[in-house]
Design a protein around this nucleic acid. Structure first.
Lengths: 124, 124
DNA sequence: GACATCTCAGACAGAATGTCTGACACTGCC
DNA sequence: GGCAGTGTCAGACATTCTGTCTGAGATGTC
C-alpha cells in the first residue's frame, strides 16, 4: 500500500506538452520545453518520461525508431489524484470536507454559482 | 517567491498532537507520538518542531526551562494551503475549478447536499 | 555537587529530483 | 560497406528533503 509519488513540476511540464500534442517523440517534447535543444536536455526529458511511465501517467509506443509517447491520464485525473491525496492526509480520505471547505470560502460569480447548483442537483 | 514547502506526514503527526494539546512540551509530544520515549525520539520531535517553526506552523514559548509549543495554524488553514497548492499547480491558482470538479464527482447525502446549497447561497 | 532534563548544532543515511555523460543500436545516404 | 545523425539505455552526479541520532553544554532539582 505504498503511497503513489506526486507528479513533479518538471514532469507536469512534460505532461502539458503531451496533452497538447499526443504521440510526441522525446525530441518534440524537448523542443517544446527547452528553448535550446541539446543532447543533455533530451536525456533529461527521457528520464522524466521514464519516471512518468513508472507512475502510470504515460505510455510508450516502441514500434518506430524513435519512441512515441502519450499521456494515459487527463488533467482532470491528475486533479483527482491530488485532491484525493489532500483528503487522505487531512480528512481521513473523504472528499466531502474538501468540497464543503471550498464552498465556504471560494468567491463565485453568479454564473458559477448557477452551474454549481446544477451540479449538486444532478448528483443522485 | 519560493514555494512554501509542504508539511510532512511526520510533521502533521506533531501538529495533530498540538491541536489536541496546546502548550505542549517536546517530551509530551514525543510521548504522544512514539510508544517508547527515548533521547533520540525526543531529538527527532525537536527537529520536526524546528522545521515546523520555519514553516510558520508552530510558535515557541521560551520562557520556561522546557519550551512550550503551540500550533499557529488550524487544520482548516492547512487544508487551505494544500488546496491552494493544487490550484496553483493545475488550475492557474484558481480554486473555482477545484470546487466544480469536486461537486461533479463527490457523492453527497441529502444532509450534505442541503448544507452545501446553504453555503453557496450565503456567499455574496 | 550529582544527576536528570533540556536545548542546540550538526552528522548521517536514504530517497527524490534534475542534469548530464558514455556506450551502443538503428537509419539513411554516399 | 562506411559514416553521420539520431535514438535508447544505464548509470553517475550534485542537490535537496526527510527522519533519525549523537554529543556538547546549559539549566533545573535534590
Amino acid at each position: 500500500m505504498d503511497k503513489p509519488r506526486d507528479v513533479t513540476d518538471s514532469e507536469l511540464a512534460v505532461l502539458d506538452v503531451l496533452w497538447n500534442q499526443p504521440q510526441a517523440t522525446i525530441r518534440e517534447i524537448t523542443e517544446a520545453i527547452y528553448e535550446d535543444y541539446s543532447p543533455s536536455s533530451h536525456a533529461t526529458v527521457q528520464k522524466l518520461l521514464e519516471r512518468l511511465e513508472a507512475k502510470d501517467c504515460v505510455a510508450r509506443d516502441r514500434s518506430g525508431f524513435a519512441h512515441r509517447f502519450r499521456a494515459t491520464i487527463e488533467r482532470s485525473d491528475l486533479l483527482d489524484r491530488q485532491l484525493e491525496a489532500v483528503a487522505d492526509k487531512l480528512c481521513e480520505g473523504s472528499l466531502t470536507p474538501l468540497l464543503l471547505h471550498l464552498a465556504s470560502r471560494t468567491k463565485l460569480s453568479d454564473e458559477e454559482r448557477k452551474l454549481l447548483r446544477k451540479l449538486i442537483n444532478d448528483r443522485t
